[in-house]
Amino acid sequence: MAGRRKGRRDEEAAPLGSLSAPGQVHAPGTATCGVCGSDRLTRLHLALADGTDVTFVSCHQCEHRAWFPLDGDGTALERDEVVRRSSRS
């Protein structure tokens, strides 16, 4: 076969991850935007430097951003709190 390198094995490609993969667990309070109510959100599961698991939410409609602890009650963390928890001092 033209274009194949000698000695390479055919390896099945690993499936790529997705930002919108179904079945991901997100924090309470992240179903809709807290500002405009839109459900068009990007949600990312992140671990802050202090070990806090959060869902970062960015609204496609109004561009509001927030961080919600996975074990929280649906209240977003203040930006200063996220910065404090993210520092590696």
Rank of each mutant, 00 (worst) to 15 (best):
G74W: 01
D50T: 13
V54L: 05
L19S: 01
G74S: 11
L70K: 01
L44F: 00
R40H: 14
L19V: 09
D73S: 07
E78H: 07
C36D: 13
G23L: 09
G23Q: 02
S87A: 15
L77Q: 03
V35F: 15
C62M: 02
V57A: 07
E78V: 10
D39L: 02
T75K: 12
L16W: 13
C33N: 07
G23T: 08
F68E: 02
G51C: 09
A76Q: 07
A2V: 11
V82S: 01
G37M: 10
L48A: 07
L46K: 15
V25F: 05
R9I: 05
R84V: 01
C36L: 09
T32P: 01
A27S: 08
R8N: 13
E81K: 00
R4D: 14
E11D: 07
L48T: 10
T30R: 05
D71G: 12
E81N: 04
V25G: 05
P22D: 06
L16I: 15
R4H: 10
S87R: 15
A66Y: 09
K6E: 14
L41E: 00
Q24I: 08
R65D: 04
S38Y: 10
S18W: 12
R4T: 12
E12G: 07
H60K: 14
G23C: 12
W67V: 06
Q24D: 11
R65A: 11
Q61G: 06
G29H: 01
H45T: 14
E63M: 12
S58Y: 13
C59G: 05
A31V: 14
A14I: 13
T55W: 07
R5G: 10
G17C: 06
E63I: 13
E11W: 09
Q61P: 01
A27N: 00
G34D: 05
A13Q: 12
C36F: 00
R85E: 02
A49I: 00
R4S: 13
L77K: 08
V35W: 14
A27P: 00
D10A: 15
S87K: 13
G34S: 09
R84N: 05
A66H: 07
A76T: 05
C59W: 08
D50G: 03
V35C: 10
A27D: 01
T42D: 03
S18T: 08
G37C: 09
L16T: 13
V82H: 06
T52F: 00
R9E: 14
S38A: 11
L19Q: 03
C33R: 12
A2G: 11
F68P: 01
G23P: 00
R84G: 03
L41F: 11
K6C: 04
L48K: 08
M1H: 08
P15L: 06
A66C: 04
A14T: 09
E12C: 02
L44P: 00
F56T: 02
D39N: 11
A66I: 09
V82A: 02
R43H: 02
V54P: 00
R88D: 12
R88L: 06
A49P: 04
R65H: 09
F56S: 02
G74A: 13
T52V: 08
S38Q: 11
S87E: 15
D73V: 06
L77P: 06
A66W: 09
A13H: 04
F68D: 01
S87D: 13
L19W: 06
D71S: 06
L46E: 14
D10C: 03
A27V: 02
V83R: 15
